[in-house]
Design a protein around this nucleic acid. Structure first.
Lengths: 145, 145
DNA sequence: TTAATTCCGAGTTAATTAGTGCGGATTAAA
DNA sequence: TTTAATCCGCACTAATTAACTCGGAATTAA
């Protein structure tokens, strides 16, 4: 049950953009440095997020990336689905185009994986970037006290 | 967020043993055939389950495998942890020995992965093999009607 | 003893992951 | 108009992991 670095880095990058939402486009290099990701690699990953409609790009000098929507309307689930594909502990219960399986209607493990999938989706869809910003603020307040 | 076939097959095999719990040892070959898994491969997997204390083996002719405990006291979580290691969407929030991370105390994505991990563990630990047997029964009753 | 079966360790193949690297297109600012 | 910053897209590779395969030794019931 491991995420690849794609999902992991994807969320880091999106959270970074959320933290600077409203300050114009952020260059990829800046995000990469702050989040400690190879910028060559992040370039690849952010292309996926762009194609999924989660970020907008501004080309040319002084360009960079911006969240395509406000942080409150982008969830962890959106990001993970973009980076890793549909949520599916096993292929036969994928959110989209579940893999064929001849014993599908008598397979009990299928029920299990469906429940796992749904819980996974539920928790990821319930956390938005705005929620994360709030958590970050609480955390920094807590530290100061 | 994919399980490997190890976890998938592991649960299939354990459920198969649960369905025949009480009828003495079941040969590996029988399980492999019923569940449509290469017996060479399943041999490897069941060794892991045995070492984790989830199944007992009986060697020699008429031997085979038996659940080490009753189906009600073995959960999906037990099986998945045995087959795939500790539950951890990313290494820094592993159930055991979380990986080091220099930004650990300011990392917000960490909070997210912790919540994901906990939900995952919660749902897997809440389903026992006995629950699955009950589901199987309900399913077959529903079909007859 | 023979046949059935687990047990063990090593070897193999294919796919995936996690990047690297580079040339080019686009745009803003000097 | 030139230059520098930046995105864009593709090709490549090295390392790791997944998913098996194989052969043979040990054990036990019939």
């Amino acid at each position: 049950m491991h995420l690849s670095t794609r999902g992991h880095y994807g969320l880091l990058a999106m959270f970074d953009l959320a933290e600077h939402y409203g300050s114009g486009p952020i260059p990829l290099k800046t995000v990469a440095e702050r989040q400690n990701i190879s910028d060559n690699y992040l370039e690849q990953l952010i292309a996926v997020l762009r194609k999924a409609g989660l970020v907008r790009s501004v080309r040319g000098a002084q360009g960079g990336y911006i969240l395509a929507r406000e942080p409150g309307s982008i969830t962890v689930g959106d990001i993970i689905r973009a980076m890793e594909g549909p949520i599916a502990p096993v292929d036969c219960v994928s959110e989209v185009e579940p893999a064929e399986c001849d014993q599908a209607d008598s397979c009990i493990t299928r029920l299990v994986w469906t429940r796992v999938r749904d819980k996974l989706a539920e928790v990821m869809d319930s956390i938005s970037l705005a929620d994360m910003l709030r958590d970050a603020e609480n955390l920094s307040i807590a530290k100061k006290v």
